[in-house]
């Protein structure tokens, strides 16, 4: 009798836990749906006045002008926005987990400012204002350089969260001041180009860029997800994770490398779109809790939703002007984030 009672209670606990995870799964599906709906809306709105029905029709049949605008201008932009959001959201979640720090993001590790410095070099020395691929290549080289520096110092000093964060912050200051120095030397046009790059813009997104940044952002995804359970253990301390069989420094170095690659895939083609990498994982954590098995896909989806909505608003609210996406994400993201931070009083965060 007594054991029967125990078994029932036991089942109950497990089922409650499973119900919690099932709820997370449903919410993930909901966010996927939201992302899809916003994507469709984004395809239908814009500077040229094509009706919503024409825009949707353009996706499936040839209706002239509308088809060209939707397929060549809006669709690549929508895909790129989603990709960038996915890349920044996922890499932010990974950085926060493996560095065990809620302030970590691609930018606290200096990856943003090193990419910026690469872009500045390209603009000032390699005619980057005309040749946009120079900007992409140099930005990419410098994101790799900064992550190699962080990994190198970690190999030498031990791959602790503190070593990595301090190295990253030091690099951030180094690259920012180098950028400022080159801007000081640059011409008026060059400085203008640099400022524009730092705002971030999706206007140059084409299918070739989508393929390249898509590979950099999506290819590391399965590997990152493979480590999700290890990330859970690492947030509870290196020693106990190690005692449970996690190769802590190995997982940390590899994850930082993968997340850096995702970040550079997201920012090299479009400029520094700040904030999403920090805020998407936090919003995800408020809704889904800290279990990385859900937190990582949720951060990706929320990142995608945020970037896409910000870009869509940026190119529609102040016609015929386009507000740079980096500015819109901060304008909308910061108050929204503060609101959530204040309002949330429940269990998680």
């Amino acid at each position: 009798m007594n054991t029967d009672c125990l078994t029932i209670k036991n089942q109950d606990m497990k089922n409650q836990y499973k119900a919690l995870k099932y709820r997370s799964l449903v919410l993930l599906a909901a966010f996927f749906l939201i992302a899809s709906v916003i994507a469709v809306i984004a395809l239908c709105v814009g500077a040229s006045s094509i009706s919503v029905t024409d825009s949707i029709l353009a996706l499936i049949e040839d209706n002239g002008m509308a088809r060209s605008i939707v397929w060549n201008l809006r669709l690549p932009r929508v895909i790129m926005a989603l990709l960038i959001g996915i890349g920044l959201g996922t890499s932010g979640a990974v950085f926060q987990a493996v560095l065990r720090n809620p302030l970590a993001s691609p930018f606290t590790l200096g990856i943003g400012s090193s990419a910026g410095f690469g872009a500045v070099i390209a603009i000032v020395f390699f005619n980057g204002l005309v040749n946009e691929y120079a900007v992409v290549i140099w930005a990419f080289i410098f994101t790799l350089l900064s992550s190699f520096l962080i990994l190198g110092v970690s190999r030498y000093k031990g791959a602790t969260a503190e070593t990595m964060i301090l190295t990253g912050i030091a690099l951030m200051f180094l690259f920012s001041s180098l950028s400022s120095f080159l801007q000081y030397l640059g011409t008026k046009e060059e400085v203008h180009g640099i400022v524009f790059w730092f705002f971030g813009s999706l206007s140059k997104a084409g299918y070739r860029e989508i393929v390249m940044s898509g590979i950099m952002i999506l290819a590391p995804m399965p590997f990152v997800f493979r480590f999700a359970f290890d990330f859970n253990l690492m947030t509870a301390g290196d020693e106990s994770a190690g005692a449970l069989g996690v190769n802590v420094s190995g997982v940390r170095m590899l994850s930082i490398a993968l997340a850096s690659l995702m970040t550079s895939g997201a920012i090299c083609f479009t400029g520094v779109i700040g904030f999403i990498g920090l805020v998407a994982p936090h919003i995800a954590r408020m809704i889904f809790g800290s279990d990385n098995l859900f937190l990582i896909p949720a951060s990706a989806l929320i990142g995608g939703v945020l970037v896409l909505s910000a870009d869509t608003l940026g190119r529609t609210v102040w016609l015929p002007h386009v507000i740079p996406i980096g500015i819109v994400t901060s304008f909308i993201g910061v108050p929204f984030f503060l609101y959530l931070l204040i309002k949330k009083t429940k269990e998680y965060w």
């Binding site: 606990m13 809620p102 947030t235 020693e239 809790g289």
Partner: peptide
């Protein structure tokens, strides 16, 4: 291994 402390900065359920 039972450590002295559990330095998590992120909320986590007891079950997790």
């Amino acid at each position: 291994y039972v450590p002295q402390a559990f330095p998590s900065k992120f909320p986590m359920t007891v079950f997790d």
